[in-house]
Nucleic acid binder design. Structure first.
Length: 485
RNA sequence: GCGGAGUUAGUUUAGUCUGGUAUGACGUCAGCUUCCCAAGCUGAAGGCCGCGGGUUCAAAUCCCGCACUCCGCACCA
């Protein structure tokens, strides 16, 4: 199914919808998750914790969304997260100052240069708008970070543009008090904020968005020594270094030097295993190795995990080897010590980052799971049972003859353990289809036989088959089918 | 940010040229009926027609501005 179908489902069934929609001054790039969306998101994150955080013995923290100016001076975001832009006085088009000058006059000015340098170059080389030959306004800096004023004096701080900075600045304390040993993963889920010029496509480019980030601190001298590599050496990943993605095992990827070391390969491996369990079609995925110009300013080696959807390849995760970029800049700026002992060696750890976009991942799960079942005239959201916002619908075949009361009784028993949904209203087929659309994998139906022998039917979403089971067994059956893998 | 197209109920849609406050479908709710896959009947709720301004006796409709959505360009640590 395509973007339009997913959007319709999202709006009709409460997965997500525009923020502040009743007001005309609502800004673009802000969306809310409704009940179904929150259900899916919570379960997705639980899976992430199981498959990455707990599997690897990582620490999870929850940091501030507003962070001080110093953090971003050290991180480089105040300098490099801003683009020098020029605007044409005639046609109002905007361009990157450094790129336009490089293109038109063959002069390289670093993007972090003073704004006067750009203006000077434009004047001296008589650079005009490439579109309409108009003249340019003075160069401005466009920083993607949201500024906030703190306290009555409105001291400047920023909404974080990525969650990971708290992991870096908290590292010295965490390593000490949590008795850390390299390699050590520290994880965080939370919101980040970027003032995108053109937010678009609902969850795919937001100004306020969720990230699940992992920073693995490691000794750069020991990147070939990761013990747990054996666990994933035979896991098949798809890697694209040139034109087409190629499937290979993690072991092969390291041997052929497509991935630089076992350490990076291990994390790409467990990441692939995680995404496989979300129900995303992994044959439509790739780790795309980024070229020099595409990489973020802090990255030494970078792989984007991308998945193909009906609107093209979507970047779900950025995997960056950030070297000691972050720790050394924070050490220098804060004058704190960031070195730690690894066996008998004092090292400033390097960082490998797995920066996941949660919103885009959820969209992709929805798109890959949404099926148009023409044969049975229904729309089915074939979510993995453990990700479904509703685990089980509890339905009465008819309301009369005491079936309603019996159904209520069963619902009360189930609802504290499972995400259960009670429904008495309308024809039974209609109720099944409603459940199909929000991805509920099971429906329990109470009929006349229930009153006689304490059995109910349990209907499977995907096959539409039904089995008769004892009410007393529901707990264990549902528990088994809806538990995380 | 530039260019283009659009915005009418939860969703989808007619009406806009040719001005007279809105149509159908699906969905929702209640009742009856049937009782295992969107059946039927009856009834109901739900719209300041994206927002603001202008023209007019009168604006969903004409004009202007803005916002948002989608497409293309640019941008995307």
């Amino acid at each position: 199914m395509n973007y339009e179908n997913v959007m319709k489902l999202a709006l009709e069934r409460g997965f997500y919808f525009p923020s502040c929609e009743v007001y005309g001054d609502a800004q673009a790039g802000f969306w809310e998750y409704g009940p179904s969306g929150v259900g899916l998101k919570n379960k997705f994150l639980e899976l992430w914790r199981r498959e990455l955080v707990r599997r690897d013995g990582m620490l999870e923290i929850d940091g501030s969304q507003i962070m001080s100016k110093s953090v971003f001076e050290a991180s480089g975001h105040l300098g490099s997260f801003a683009d020098p832009i020029i605007k044409c006085t005639n046609c109002k088009s905007t361009f990157r100052a450094d790129r336009t000058i490089a293109e038109m006059a063959k002069i390289d000015i670093p993007e972090s240069a003073d704004l006067e340098d750009f203006d000077k170059a434009i004047k001296e080389n008589d650079i005009k708008c490439p579109k309409c030959k108009g003249t340019f306004e003075n160069t401005k800096k466009f920083n993607m970070m949201f500024k906030v004023g703190i306290g009555p004096e409105e001291e400047i701080a920023y909404l974080r543009p990525e969650t990971c900075q708290s992991i870096f600045v908290d590292f010295p304390r965490l390593f000490k008090i949590m008795r850390g040993k390299l390699p050590l993963g520290i994880a965080q889920v939370g919101k980040s904020f970027r003032n995108e010029i053109a937010p678009r496509q609902s969850l795919l480019r937001l100004r306020e968005f969720y990230q699940a980030e992992i920073e693995v601190f490691c000794n750069p001298a020991r990147l070939q020594e990761i013990e747990r590599f054996e666990e994933i050496q035979d896991t098949v990943i798809r890697v694209q270094t040139e034109s087409e993605p190629v499937s290979m095992t993690c072991k092969e990827a390291v041997e052929r030097k497509i991935i630089p070391n076992k350490f990076v390969a291990y994390y790409l491996g467990i990441l692939t295993e995680f995404y496989e369990k979300t129900g995303i079609d992994i044959t439509k995925s790739r780790f795309r190795k980024l070229g020099e110009k595409e990489k973020a300013f802090y990255a030494e080696v970078a792989f984007d995990f991308e998945v193909e959807t009906t609107i093209g390849w979507l970047e779900l995760v950025a995997c960056n080897y950030r070297s000691d970029y972050d720790l050394s800049s924070h050490a220098k700026k804060s004058k704190e010590k960031f070195e730690v002992m690894d066996n008998d060696e004092k090292v400033l750890p390097h960082v490998f980052e797995i920066s996941m976009g949660i919103d885009r991942s959820l969209y992709t799960i929805l798109e890959h799971s949404l099926k148009d079942d023409k044969e049975n005239e229904r729309t089915v959201l074939s979510l993995k049972p453990y990700l479904s916002p509703i685990h089980v619908g509890v339905l009465s075949l008819v309301k009369k003859d005491g079936l309603k009361e019996k159904t209520d009784e069963i619902y009360v028993k189930l609802k504290r353990k499972f995400d259960a949904f009670l429904d008495h209203s309308g024809a039974i087929g209609r109720r099944y289809r409603r459940l199909d659309e929000i991805g509920s994998p099971f429906a329990v139906t109470v009929d006349h036989q229930t009153l006689e022998d304490e059995t109910v039917t349990i209907r499977m979403r995907d096959s539409m088959e039904q089995k008769r089971v004892k009410v007393s067994e529901l707990d264990s059956i549902l528990g088994e089918y809806t538990s995380f893998p």
